[in-house]
């Protein structure tokens, strides 16, 4: 009876929706598409140049700060970084290391000593300080310190540092959005994303970590292909980076829309692949978020 009542009401709603006249005329859509065609990509080269210039300022700033720090201990950063002073600044690693597949890393390259950092070396998170203070100088602003808090994921077996105010959110739909409930049951995780944790500061800045158990290279390539196809279906375009966003031997890349940057990085530990996706609103490019994202990825340690 209850079922019948429900079905009847749903049928009624469906009928009513179908009766609503369409607001958008096909002609208007055709005109909009033609306009798009005439104007080309809305995310213009000019716009990209402006963002690239801003990023460039950060890079130069990072290098300068790095130089200043190289001889001393001016930052209040606690000794969690085993790469020495300036290790977290925005001085990128090997520029050739942008889109190369991690599984395709040449045999003579050892991911564990490429930059003097051994990501896979057992490093019990208990030995990591609870807080890592990092100073940043943003364009036109005074130097400011941020306390990054240690985050340990028992479920996904990693630890890293989170930007102040950034919190773990429940991933409800495989897209990193926040849900109303607690952790979902295991069966609600997608086929590929075996385990997911999402972190958000705001709509402007969020990160997802996906851990996958990869049995073979083909499976991994399929997963990546599906992921990037999804990005493109979402309207993201792939951008070639002049320099890698994240330091270290890892596969990484950049996608973007007119509103968002989406960086990704791939790290491997034992038989696990970790796919990290950083979503950054273009308007947030001038803030501390790009550096916060670097800290998140570059400070990742696995258990």
């Amino acid at each position: 009876m209850q079922e019948e009542r429900f079905d009847k009401a749903m049928q009624e709603i469906k009928r009513k929706y179908n009766d609503i006249p369409t607001k958008t005329s096909s002609q208007e859509i055709i005109q909009a598409v033609q306009q798009e065609k005439r104007h080309g990509k809305r995310f213009s080269l000019k716009q990209f140049s402006a963002v690239a210039a801003t990023i460039g300022v950060f890079i130069i700033g990072g290098i300068l700060i790095g130089s200043l720090l190289s001889g001393g201990d001016e930052t209040s950063q606690e000794p969690v970084d085993d790469r020495g002073p300036g290790g977290n600044e925005w001085n990128s690693g090997d520029p050739d290391n942008d889109e190369t597949g991690m599984l395709n890393v040449p045999d003579d390259v050892d991911p564990e000593d490429g930059d003097g950092q051994n990501r896979d070396e057992p490093d019990p998170s208990t030995e990591r300080p609870a807080v890592m203070t990092k100073s940043m100088v943003l364009e036109g602003m005074e130097e400011r310190s941020y306390d990054f808090e240690l985050y340990e994921s028992e479920a996904l077996g990693f630890s890293t540092y989170l930007f102040p105010g950034m919190e773990l959110v429940v991933d409800t739909n495989g897209n990193g959005t926040q849900g109303e409930e607690g952790v979902e049951s295991e069966e609600e995780v997608s086929d590929f994303a075996e385990e997911v944790e999402s972190f958000a500061f705001s709509d402007f800045y969020s990160i997802r970590v996906i851990r996958l158990h990869v049995e073979n290279e083909v499976m991994w390539e399929d997963w990546l292909y599906d992921t990037f196809s999804r990005y493109e279906a979402e309207g993201y375009e792939r951008f070639v980076q002049d320099r890698p966003m994240f330091e270290g031997n890892m596969q990484q890349g950049l996608y973007g829309t007119s509103d968002y940057w989406r960086y990704y990085a791939v790290l491997e530990h034992d038989h696990w692949m970790y796919f990290v996706e950083v979503n950054l609103n273009i308007e947030a490019g001038d803030g501390p978020y790009p550096i916060a994202a670097q800290v998140f990825v570059e400070e990742l340690k696995f258990q």
Binding site: E28, A32, V33, E36
Partner: peptide
């Protein structure tokens, strides 16, 4: 939204 959907379809 409807226009944007078809613009994306057109582009991709």
């Amino acid at each position: 939204v409807t226009q944007e959907v078809f613009i994306k379809v057109y582009r991709f």
